[in-house]
Design a protein around this nucleic acid. Structure first.
Lengths: 138, 138
DNA sequence: TCCTACAATGGACAATGTCTAAGTCAAGCA
DNA sequence: TGCTTGACTTAGACATTGTCCATTGTAGGA
């Protein structure tokens, strides 16, 4: 499962236990974790890892484009390891659960020039909101 | 300009100086302010207004559907007074500027049932990211 | 005008994220 | 293998954003 680690090494990353652990946590389960959750899981594997390191490492992974930052309206940013396949998100307004989804269509094409105000538009992010099955029955 | 105030009164809002000021701030400039910016502007008009009151009032306005919360990836939530006309956002990745935009198409229709995972989907939020003209030249 | 429930206050607290100075160690090299 | 060095990590202070609560104030009806 060291695709990610290989790529990072290839980019000149110095490989440390801490970085390996953070990468493993993200790579392990394809969930959308908050920085704090990543830290908690990292501590399980490497008790002395510090919060700052987790934040630093996540920031670097985002910069390198290996991981996406997702801003739902919850307090904390979440990190999405699935950065290489374009996709969007479906968020439960009740419990905050997130799923990756793949809508048809191309929203970028739906923004006419007249609505671009001179911006160079490079990216779209679509967030569907609703209620997940669990919360619907509760 | 007191459309908003009228509507609120109609809903049984108790009209206080503080609430009026917050409503005025939002109604005044159609920008996307952070809670803190709202507070700063409110203090200009009513120096003794407290932070908690601004947060409470914003929260109520959101609940009433008079104002939208916008979560870009910036640190703080922003508040969008333009809640009655559906629209989406174009955000400058550099400086954080936000513009309202009106794409064609209906992204809700672009999410097939097979991608809904049993969720009841009620809302879509599309965020375009790019570089604004100002930041492009800088 | 007086009452009362609702609203505002301010300050403590919580959650998330950032910074810094000092110590540590991965990796290249002899 | 054993240095050397600069990148990495650490702990904890600090910053920012948001929430809570007990107390005080007040809008609006009787």
């Amino acid at each position: 499962m060291s695709d990610l680690l290989e790529r990072l090494r290839g980019r000149g990353w110095r490989m440390t236990a801490q970085r390996r652990v953070v990468a493993e946590v993200l790579d392990g389960e394809h969930v959308h974790l908050t920085a704090d959750e990543v830290h908690a899981r990292a501590v399980d594997k490497l008790p002395e890892i510090s919060r700052a390191t987790v934040y630093n490492t996540l920031g670097e992974l985002v910069t390198l484009g290996e991981v996406l930052e997702v801003a739902t309206d919850k307090r904390a940013k979440r990190y999405d390891p699935n950065a290489h396949q374009p996709h969007h998100h479906l968020v439960c307004a009740r419990c905050g659960a997130i799923r990756d989804v793949h809508p048809t269509g191309n929203p970028l094409a739906d923004l006419p020039d007249s609505e671009r105000f001179g911006f160079t538009v490079s990216d779209v992010e679509v967030t569907y909101r609703g209620t997940c099955p669990n919360c619907a029955t509760a």
